[in-house]
């Protein structure tokens, strides 16, 4: 758990508030009355099995998609009433780390990190250089400034994307599955960086992942999503101690439970003997 947890004021206004959200994708309901909050200065973890809509929730929070019902409020402003300029202004206050890094493949590492600064600020080249190198140093990749994204490993690409996400000093940092596909060393590095950056910048952090152990070490507050709803919320310790079957199955990584091992199908015996496919 991060050091900041003790300083988190539970009564402070949430930076992100998702209230009673309903959302469907291609006719399939993804969320049915979802309620999630990210408190200021805290690390909020959003967990859940694959396909439960974690990334969709991030897309709702960042205004990439809109809910069919309910409200999403970020920095105290409802996304439903925002025009494009207001949405871009909101996004300048947040950083996002994508699952695959999403680095711009035709730019060097340095230019990738410099990209948002060049787009939004007119800084002298020397100042920009110092800023970018400082952020790259923070993620341990100052020496890789001249490499192209194709020359980076998955872990390095994610660290560069992290440097890019913090280069504008965001108030809210969102991580979408930051641990997926990483070796143990890279995973350890990313876990430490998330905690260190959170404390150093004093920001609000949302981490979406299904890596229970890593999130337990990081999060102040966790939500477990399943079936389009929050099935459990609390500190990682509270979730670990929960007796709810859905929570126990997820936290212990059990193959069968409320989330069934078998996809719904016709009777096995009848199908085998009946000769149907």
């Amino acid at each position: 758990m991060s050091d900041s947890s003790s300083t988190v004021d539970a009564a402070s206004s949430p930076v992100v508030a998702v209230r009673d959200v309903q959302f469907s994708l291609a006719g399939r309901p993804v969320f049915q009355g979802l309620d999630v909050q990210a408190r200021r200065g805290a690390i909020t973890a959003i967990m859940g099995p694959s396909g439960t809509g974690k990334t969709t929730l991030l897309r709702l929070i960042t205004g990439q998609i809109e809910p069919a019902a309910g409200s999403v409020t970020v920095f105290g402003e409802s996304l439903a009433t925002q025009d494009r300029d207001a949405r871009y202004a909101m996004r300048r206050r947040m950083g996002m780390l994508f699952q695959n890094g999403a680095l711009l493949t035709d730019l060097t590492v340095f230019e990738n990190v410099a990209f948002p600064v060049r787009a939004h600020a007119r800084l002298p080249e020397s100042v920009l250089r110092q800023l970018v190198l400082t952020k790259l140093q923070a993620v341990g990749l100052r020496g890789a400034a001249d490499l192209m994204p194709a020359q980076l490993s998955g872990g390095m690409a994610r660290r560069v994307a992290l440097a890019r996400a913090i280069v504008m000093d965001p108030e809210l940092l969102i991580y979408d599955e930051p641990f997926v596909g990483l070796d143990p060393i890279s995973m350890g590095v990313i876990v430490r960086l998330i905690g260190r950056i959170h404390r150093a910048l004093g920001i609000t952090t949302i981490v979406v992942s299904h890596d229970v152990a890593e999130l337990a070490a990081l999060a102040d507050h966790s939500y477990l999503l399943s079936g389009g709803k929050v099935v459990a919320a609390g500190t990682p310790a509270e979730l670990a101690a929960s007796a709810q079957p859905a929570v126990r199955q997820f936290m212990a990584g059990e193959a069968d439970g409320p989330v069934a091992f078998h996809y719904p199908a016709d009777d096995y015996r009848a199908q085998l003997l009946g000769g149907r496919r």
Binding site: R91, A102, L104
Partner: peptide, 17 residues
């Protein structure tokens, strides 16, 4: 491919059109 690898979405998220 920029769309498929989230590069265009990343730009949107950086408030860059």
């Amino acid at each position: 491919l920029m769309r498929a690898t989230d590069q265009l979405t990343a730009m949107e998220m950086m408030a860059v059109d």
